[in-house]
């Protein structure tokens, strides 16, 4: 079942791509993350050009986030006002990110920066999560819910331009909110991720948003950030592969349903330890590739950096 992807310009096996989408969908349903940070490296491992993998990853993330956000909207666990503020920051970040992406590709350093960002972020997030979940298992806590710390980060709450977010029971300056949004927007365009794995801890630990509204709000804003990124990538770099994205989405939507069921049967700390190991494995795989002798030292591209 091989199929020729129009933008990536290579033949792929449909079953492998749908399976990849299903596996990541399963994990994202299980752990409540978008899965972009797994899809993009997996596509790169499968020889999809990194630039196409990044842009298509952003497109795929929309479907997963929209599906998840709908459920949260019905349960009323989205803070629309907070989401909107994050979104304004996110749109600015996306524009900056796509601009950065185009420049990096032209100077031939895009692949390197994408890999490095993945190694750094996946390594940090995976490492922290692993340490945290193992210590939670040691304590033998049954629920495994992440505790809400208080006290620190007073400076964030002293910033001007305060705004009230009723659903999150928050009265905080918009500056850090816009900043987090912009940062996620840049990551979304350069790494092809929704940014949930950065957004969720940032909202919890920096802004102290209640855990119940964090996931829904984060999903809500990711839809738009990923949508802006997709449209910008499609109109400036022409590297969104709609066929590849669609195959991934089909797998993802189905996989997510089974993942959510599996997730309910595992304990929170075990779940987080598993996800942490997975994140670390992808990180190591990408890291090794940067260090090991590549075999072929030369490469040819168009002046814009597009593969020819």
């Amino acid at each position: 079942m091989s199929f020729y992807l129009p933008i990536a310009e290579i033949s792929v096996n449909i079953l492998v791509i749908v399976g990849m989408g299903a596996a990541v969908g399963f994990l994202s349903g299980m752990f409540g993350v978008g899965g972009g940070f797994l899809i993009t490296p997996l596509l790169i491992f499968y020889n999809i050009p990194p630039a196409v993998a990044v842009a298509t990853g952003a497109n795929q993330v929309i479907a997963a986030s929209f599906s998840g956000a709908l459920a949260h909207y019905r349960r009323g666990t989205i803070d629309l006002k907070l989401g909107l503020m994050l979104l304004i920051g996110g749109a600015v970040g996306s524009v900056l990110g796509v601009f950065l992406f185009t420049i990096l590709r032209r100077i031939g350093q895009l692949d390197l920066i994408v890999s490095l960002l993945y190694v750094v972020f996946l390594g940090t997030v995976g490492g922290l999560m692993f340490v945290e979940s193992v210590s939670a298992m040691r304590r033998g806590g049954g629920s495994g819910e992440v505790g809400r710390r208080s006290g620190q980060h007073g400076w964030i709450h002293r910033l001007p331009l305060k705004m009230r977010f009723q659903r999150s029971k928050l009265y905080v300056s918009v500056i850090p909110v816009l900043g987090i949004g912009a940062f996620i927007g840049i990551l979304a365009s350069v790494m092809g991720v929704g940014g949930g794995f950065i957004m969720v801890p940032a909202l919890i630990y920096l802004l102290r948003v209640p855990t119940s509204v964090v996931v829904g709000t984060s999903l809500f804003q990711i839809i738009f950030t990923a949508a802006v990124t997709t449209i910008l990538q499609a109109s400036t770099n022409y590297n969104v592969d709609i066929v590849l994205a669609f195959l991934l989405m089909i797998g993802g939507v189905v996989g997510a349903q089974f993942g959510a069921d599996a997730g309910r049967r595992l304990r929170g700390d075990q779940l987080r330890a598993l996800l942490a190991l997975l994140v670390l494995a992808v990180c190591i795989r990408l890291g090794v590739e940067l260090v090991v002798y590549p075999g072929e030292l030369y490469s040819i591209s168009l002046p814009s950096g597009e593969s020819d």
Binding site: N59, Q60, S65, F66, T230, I242, M249, I250, V253, A256
Partner: peptide, 19 residues
């Protein structure tokens, strides 16, 4: 490119909603 991007987004939203 721009219209293509919008279609890609619409397809993703539809797939997510349909799922």
């Amino acid at each position: 490119g721009f219209v293509y991007g919008i279609l890609a987004v619409a397809l993703a939203i539809f797939t997510g909603w349909f799922g």
